[in-house]
Every structure is written in structure tokens, then in C-alpha cells.
Amino acid sequence: MTINGRRVSIDADPSESLAYVLRERLRLTGTKISCDVQVCGACTVLVDGLPVSSCTYLAYEARGREVLTVEGLAHTDGALDPLQRAFIEDNAFQCGYCTGGMLLAAHAYLADEQDGDSGENVFEALAGNICRCTGYVPIVAAVLRVRDG
């Protein structure tokens, strides 16, 4: 599979979740495990641009596909993505445990918006991601800051 633009070859057991492969085999620990039941969204990564719960989603499913994790959001020269900058500017995180997944959910939403009508508003697009610290409004503010330029 391709992870954050780099092709990697992994000999994983079919029963390994994508999060396990990312965190334990590749040491990409920006992907967090929290609820472990596909509810909280902390483990959200994008596979071919679509958000999945990597806690449950099998690494098997990502074979031959492109996986984007929070570690791959910044540009190759190290510059932060506008969404990452907006998260900092708007204090869209506190403890940071949901942030990787939240950024990727927002990234998918913004990509959909660019492609045209996704049929989802920003609340619906992010509804599957839980944050316990911020009260969400700063996250919406950051996402709209990028969406509306």
C-alpha cells in the first residue's frame, strides 16, 4: 500500500487492523485508538480519500490503496497544511487526542466540497468525530476558515 505518498510493503496477518499496522508496525502513532467501536473517530484515516475507522478496518482492505494519516498532511517541505494552520490559529484542539482523526475527517470534507456538492453540511461531515475538550465550535471555525478562504 501507499502510506502518506510512500509505497510500503507489509506482510500483515489478515486479522490486523489498519490502526495496528500503522501504530505498531510503522510506528505512525499520530493515529489514536479510543472508543475502538467506530464511534469516536480518533482513529480516522483516509483510504483512497475516504474516511475509515482504522481501529476496526482491516489493513487487508488497504492493499494496493493510498492511505493518508495525520503524519502525511503536512507538505513534503515540512510546511503545515492550511487546515493544520487553521487548527492552531483557532485553538481547534486542546489535549490533541482527537486531532489527527478530526483533521482527516475535515480534510475529506474539504476535498468533497472542492469536488462539488457532497450533500453533507460541515456538521454532518464531522458528526462522527468526538472531541471532549473544545466544545467543537473552534473546530468548525477552523474548517470554515479553510473552506471559505
Binding site: Q38, L50, P51, V52, Y57, A105, E120, A125, A127, G128
Partner: peptide, 8 residues
């Protein structure tokens, strides 16, 4: 459910 469940 949520966007991730819908995607899969």
C-alpha cells in the same frame, strides 16, 4: 451512523 461507516 457516521461518514466512516457510510464509506465502508
Amino acid at each position: 451512523a457516521n461518514p466512516r461507516v457510510r464509506a465502508t
